[in-house]
Design a protein around this nucleic acid. Structure first.
Length: 214
DNA sequence: ATACAGAGGTGTTCC
DNA sequence: TGGAACACCTCTGTA
């Protein structure tokens, strides 16, 4: 069923302040510790085809017992039961920890800030973090407050873009090239209707899931 | 109770 | 070499 921009703008009026508040919280994450950033990275490794809430619970449990930073795959795995593809994602978490550890220290912020723009940074994340494609790399960047000018093209967002006529169809599979094309279309759409890209994502997502989460 | 759709996709392989 | 096809794999909510 097609949707109308007027309804979207009406929704925006009611949700705008909550959305802006949530985005501000994401901005603050970047000023926190490397451990906090790593926890967010692991959350994003977990989310594909899984429930965001289940992933959040799993990561919080792993933070509480410190296994996220010190546990091996065998120790981490039991906390991932509610996460889909748990064996794979457990491996990805351990690999990511190794990748971002220099000596005994996690160094994420330092390596992230060395990039001139967010698009190059995203490319680098896609190439170096197993479990990160374009969507999850974007998700991570948004969740640490760097998502101003990028789109998180998951099934909900694509469905909405289709329903608002921004794209002609919801693609079966999405290549990097197609991702960038659709992202640009969403960017133009957001500018046209006057809802910032990052706010539009949260509006769409909350429309589909009923909540503003992460 | 049993069935079934849906969960913020990505890695690997093969051509 | 860019891109299809397939593998990964299980919990949860709803009818």
């Amino acid at each position: 069923m097609p949707k109308f921009v007027n309804d979207l703008l009406r929704t925006y009026v009611t949700k705008r302040s909550a959305v802006k508040k949530r985005l501000q919280e994401f901005k603050h994450v970047f000023n926190e510790s490397d451990e906090r950033l790593f926890a967010e990275l692991c959350f994003c490794i977990c989310t594909p085809q899984s429930k965001a809430k289940s992933c959040d619970l799993a990561i919080n449990a792993l933070l509480k017992n410190n296994y996220l930073f010190t546990g091996n795959a065998k120790q981490i795995r039991p906390f991932m039961n509610a996460v889909r593809f748990a064996d794979n994602k457990t491996s990805y978490i351990v690999e990511a920890r190794n990748f971002f550890t220099e000596g005994e220290e996690l160094t994420i912020k330092e390596r992230i800030t060395s990039f001139s723009d967010v698009f190059k940074l995203r490319e680098w994340l896609v190439e170096n973090v197993k479990g990160f494609g374009m969507k999850e790399a974007s998700h991570f960047l948004r969740n640490i407050g760097m998502g101003d000018n990028i789109a998180i093209l998951d099934r909900h967002i694509l469905k909405n873009l289709y329903e608002y006529g921004v794209i002609d169809e919801v693609p079966e599979c999405i290549t990097k090239k197609l991702y960038l094309e659709i992202e640009e279309k969403m960017r133009v759409f957001s500018k046209t209707i006057g809802i910032p890209l990052d706010e539009l994502d949260l509006i769409f997502w909350s429309e589909e899931t009923g909540v503003i989460f992460k």
